[in-house]
């Protein structure tokens, strides 16, 4: 049977469900026998779920406006650089 330390070492892959089936069965067996490790697994899973469940907030209007204005300026400068007629290759003679 796994020790608690070994259980913790594999906890990440157990939470991500990326363990091979045999090791997974060993962890499940340990969690069924060890209430402390079970509760650590359960509360870790809930910790991850609660963060994943939060939707990103809408951008504040001021932040969005500032971003859009900056992007528009950038696009305008890129467009004008492309459409500007090429300058003379040498300096004009006085």
């Amino acid at each position: 049977m796994l020790t608690c330390k070994e259980f913790l070492k594999e906890l990440n892959d157990y939470l991500d469900d990326t363990l091979d089936p045999e090791l997974r069965r060993e962890l499940e067996g340990h969690a069924a026998e060890c209430p402390n490790c079970w509760v650590i697994f359960d509360t870790s899973k809930k910790t991850i779920q609660i963060f994943k469940g939060l939707e990103p907030q809408p951008l504040p209007a001021r932040v969005r406006d500032r971003l859009m204005a900056a992007l528009e300026r950038k696009m305008a400068s890129k467009t004008s650089a492309k459409t500007r007629p090429p300058g003379p290759l040498t300096s004009p003679q006085a």
Binding site: I40, T43, K46, I48, I50, F51
Partner: peptide, 13 residues
């Protein structure tokens, strides 16, 4: 990631 998850688990618990 394991350290971060366990530290957050502590705080949320």
């Amino acid at each position: 990631l394991l350290r971060a998850r366990l530290e957050l688990r502590e705080r949320l618990t």
